[in-house]
Design a binder for these strands. Structure first.
Lengths: 323, 323
DNA sequence: CGTTTCGATCGAATCGATTCGATGCTACCT
DNA sequence: AGGTAGCATCGAATCGATTCGATCGAAACG
């Protein structure tokens, strides 16, 4: 009887403890009261058999939930290079974890059709990512879309891109800037909103180009712009990381910030390796993550959830100055 | 019949298609040949009923696998602040994804006992993280430990911390350095190995202090050291991110790198926002991730896996120079 | 023409729990 | 003493598939 026999099941434990299967289950789950004596016998039997608790797979099937929430983030390699994304992920994980749910990373290339997910969070991500969308809808998986376009059946969490961007533009206008350039992200819902906000103040703003939220990418992008014309007194970026890239590249060319050029970011993350504080639009990253996770929790419970748009706030730093 | 009745099951599809449950299952899984005509009927019936494929929870129970691999990373907020960690995560995700497995983030504070995991990867992480270890062993979950201490039953993937560190130290010694300081990580297996490597060459090296792999943390750490004594001609860090912090803080104080102070890192990640190339120990981050993921896959299959120690390589940059 | 082989299909067992409804018992109330 | 709660326990149904072994025909072979 010491052979490598199969792992003990709850039924084995129940038998050993001299109780019924259902009672043993109750002893573990605590879903209904069980006398202390009985629970003790069950626990003792479990310990004796080396039973390590109810099989999660079986429980999941019975309860129809997996305890796992997916988060679609496009390409992992780029998604978390920006600390803003990390801050949000952290908050999501914290809230879900507190409810005993796990967070599963869904990369674009992977096939998640075979994974049991209780809900899926779409963090801002490219077109390709939406490929799985229809499948998830068909499977009736609750969806929470962060900073994405409106999708039927999904709960949307967003920030006020447009007015944040407009407030920043107004600040630059107040400083006397008239020729403004902007570094954009790939075409996306937030990008369009932000550009609209910018153009409320500067209809003629020039697009320097688009790149990922990455220091090196931004540097590479603006190097050509600086060389060619650089005909702008201020550059508005879509993330602090991009802005940092622009500042560094400007410095490298002897362009002083903010004396010769004002640079603004977005997000409000820490950039300790810049010796100035960026003027930026601060978004509540942790709050966004918490709100997102709570929306997912509510959807899992079956509660109706309203869409949310979180406010942002202009923070004036040392990277912008008079034109 | 248009009520919000329960979702259709494979049994419903089978009935509608006029085949047995088992045949319908075969039609979807392809585990055994099914005539084209039959498959077509089943697919048609599924489409008609709005059946979205076999329930993953049920399949998981039957097959005894969940298709999910956990990765324990300590605190999310700090774990991925270093691009080295991200590079590895990316590689892991890619390999697992190619096998249809999902990657679930396990933060320290969460209780993952109720989650069905096919395997768990322990990326270098603090003591607390090991709390769940015993439970996982009891549940017979295959474990892969990356850069961690030896644990019975786990597969270990590591890099050659010691000789990498020693090679770097030798390089500094060749340059004439004799008084060397080191910025360390929290006490851990790799930290101990690296310090041992350093002391092979500089037995007397002073420990400046320990901090996370984070630019701001490193800056904060060395600022006191510089103010007090700074009695060293070279500082060896345990990550490129730390090294960047040291370089930036030195600059801020007018200390030139490498003329007045040599600084070395570890990892070999890109630091585009530094205008010099760090001397560092390059470790195969993607390779480490792939190896780790493949070890996990093998363990899931039940294959025996040998521990692996990957080689590292010294890369000499512009951040070190003659003493 | 009888026999073997092989592919397609089916029925039934199985994965390991949770949970509903029923039952027995004790204790309390009048 | 009779009636009624209420708690602890149990048996059986259920979650939704996968998979083993058996069956049935038709094709291939001697």
């Amino acid at each position: 009887m010491s052979g490598p026999s199969r792992a003990p099941t709850l039924a084995d434990v129940a038998t050993a403890a001299g109780v019924s299967l259902s009672t043993a289950s109750l002893a573990f789950s605590g879903n209904k009261p069980v006398s202390a004596a009985t629970r003790e016998r069950v626990v003792a039997a479990a310990a004796a058999l080396g039973y390590s608790g109810p099989n999660p797979l079986a429980r999941n099937l019975r309860q129809g939930r997996s305890g796992v929430v997916g988060i679609a983030v496009g390409q992992l390699s780029t998604a978390f290079r920006d600390p803003a994304a990390l801050a949000m992920l952290d908050a999501i994980s914290e809230v879900l974890g507190a409810s005993g749910l796990g967070l599963l990373l869904m990369s674009d290339d992977d096939d998640h059709a075979r994974l049991p997910l209780d809900a899926v969070i779409y963090d801002i991500c490219g077109r390709e990512t939406w490929a799985a969308y229809d499948d998830l809808v068909a499977r009736d998986v609750p969806l929470v879309v962060v900073e994405g376009p409106a999708w039927p059946g999904a709960t949307h969490i967003d920030i006020d891109h447009r007015s944040g961007s407009a407030a920043l533009a107004a600040h630059l206008h107040d400083l006397g800037h008239r020729r403004v350039g902007t570094v954009t992200l790939a075409a996306s819902h937030p990008q369009r909103e932000r550009e609209a906000g910018l153009r409320e103040v500067f209809p003629e703003a020039t697009v320097v180009g688009a790149c990922d939220s990455d220091v090196a990418a931004a540097q590479a992008l603006v190097t050509g712009w600086f060389a060619r014309s650089g005909d702008a007194t201020a550059i508005v970026c879509q993330s602090d990381v991009q802005a940092a890239g622009v500042v560094l590249e400007a410095r490298r060319r002897g362009i002083r910030v903010p004396e010769d050029l004002s640079v603004a970011g977005f997000d409000g993350v820490a950039t300790p390796w810049l010796d100035l504080e960026l003027t930026t639009v601060v978004q509540p990253l942790a709050g966004k993550g918490r709100t997102t996770a709570e929306a997912a929790l509510a959807r899992i419970r079956g509660t109706a959830v309203d869409d949310v748009v979180l406010p942002v706030e202009l923070r004036i730093g040392d990277s912008t100055g008079p034109a």
